[in-house]
Design a protein around this nucleic acid. Structure first.
Lengths: 238, 238
DNA sequence: TGACGTTAGGACCGATCGGTCCTAATATTG
DNA sequence: CAATATTAGGACCGATCGGTCCTAACGTCA
């Protein structure tokens, strides 16, 4: 039934997350999802754009079911759920070798300025995500300091997670992703009356956080004094 | 001389930052930079890829001269320089109507997985940026708590700024960008012995930060209890 | 004067793009 | 059985892609 259609959507999602929307051709999708030809594809989608929307819908569906659902778990303390959510995102990213990044972030970077239809849909994604975080923080309000702006904190969490996935993707560095995620928890803990709920029993909200991620022995930075405003001396084939 | 060449590079930078690399054709660049034809373009660049590298080099050059230079200003307190750097980035982004985002982040999202040459170059960009931040934090060490891992803090700042520009671009929301930037300063202030150096005289490192960005009156979140795992009911033309 | 780098403009190439159309075999379900 | 949806496979379309080639008019400086 819709089996074939969702198979196409999944194949397209995989291709788009690595190549981008524009650089993923309909023929790529046909090949990846083992369709017989173009007419086979256009039997399920009337255009590439419709496929793109379907992929975006499906990816948000998965994210809502497997990601945002964690934020709603009724039996776990809200702040613990937030920590679990962050750790789950990180684990997923690491399992992918830090490639792919956030599907929404990747698509947003490519299409936010050029394609209003996609931009608005991704805006909804972030809004739903933000609302879910905000709901959790509202639930955790008794544990939070009084002045905490839950909406703002929610958006900060999203921005940092998106940025973390982006830079970890460029550096292919799982440790960098983990470090940023842990620092993000420290930022959240800053708003909590009892930071140990977020950070674990180890460090009581201190600044160092050496208890979890070992810091390299302090050494002076590698001298970017001259600033070297030039990228290259890369022989054109890095 | 090289006047024409850099004119081409600037035009291409503008197009790429809004349309992406793949969706920016050589003919687009020719039109935008008012060249007479293809041969005119290929007189300056041997391929589109070479143009892409030139654009990336040029953009980093600008970023180093106008952005990273702030981090090196010798007459200003290092932490004040960091605040100034963040504010400058935000102001630039707001001036662009929150479009374009970070050129490096945009290009990274599109090409990090698919084009190793670009990925490595962007990796260098982030490394230089990180090194410059780390150098500043090292200089500010007397004002920092003892356990601060300057390298990790530097990468966190970059990730959050990149993520902030991304989500602000999707939402076209300058206030969201400003709010995240301010929260980022609060995170940095968390590592400083005297937070007022970073946050200004108003709030002494408190959690609320209501002194600068007014929080909306506390209201229960707009009920994402059902989670609605569906994006759509957008009529395909949002 | 001549040489040379730049500007100008167009024809052209093979490849790929998104998309249409057509025929026919194969399942599925009433 | 028949009706219908799915699978299969290919020809084909106009448009655009990155890139090459060619000719000719320029400006500048030796």
């Amino acid at each position: 039934m819709t089996d074939r259609r969702s198979q196409i959507v999944d194949a397209a999602a995989h291709l788009i997350s690595h190549q981008g929307y524009a650089s993923t051709s309909v023929e790529d999708v046909i090949r990846e999802s083992r369709l017989s030809g173009k007419s086979h594809f256009y039997h399920y989608f009337k255009s590439k754009e419709e496929l793109g929307y379907a992929v975006l819908n499906r990816q948000f569906e998965r994210f809502a079911e497997r990601g945002l659902a964690i934020l709603r778990e009724p039996m776990i303390d809200p702040l613990e759920r937030l920590v679990l959510f962050i750790d789950t995102l990180v684990a997923l990213q690491v399992a992918r070798g830090c490639t792919g990044g956030s599907f929404f972030g990747t698509l947003a970077a490519e299409l936010a300025d050029a394609h209003e239809g996609f931009r608005k849909r991704i805006e909804v994604v972030f809004a739903r995500w933000s609302a879910q975080l905000q709901s959790l923080l509202w639930e955790a309000r008794p544990q939070l300091h009084d002045e905490v702006d839950t909406g703002r904190l929610a958006r900060f969490v999203i921005a940092t997670l998106e940025g973390a996935m982006l830079v970890a993707r460029v550096d292919r560095d799982a440790d960098a992703l983990r470090a940023i995620a842990y620092d993000l928890k420290r930022f959240v803990a800053m708003h909590v009356r009892e930071p140990a709920v977020v950070l674990g029993a180890g460090a009581g909200g201190g600044v160092g956080a050496a208890s979890v991620i070992p810091a390299p022995p302090a050494a002076p930075p590698a001298a970017p004094r001259d600033a070297s405003p030039d990228l290259a001396v890369m022989s054109a084939r890095g």
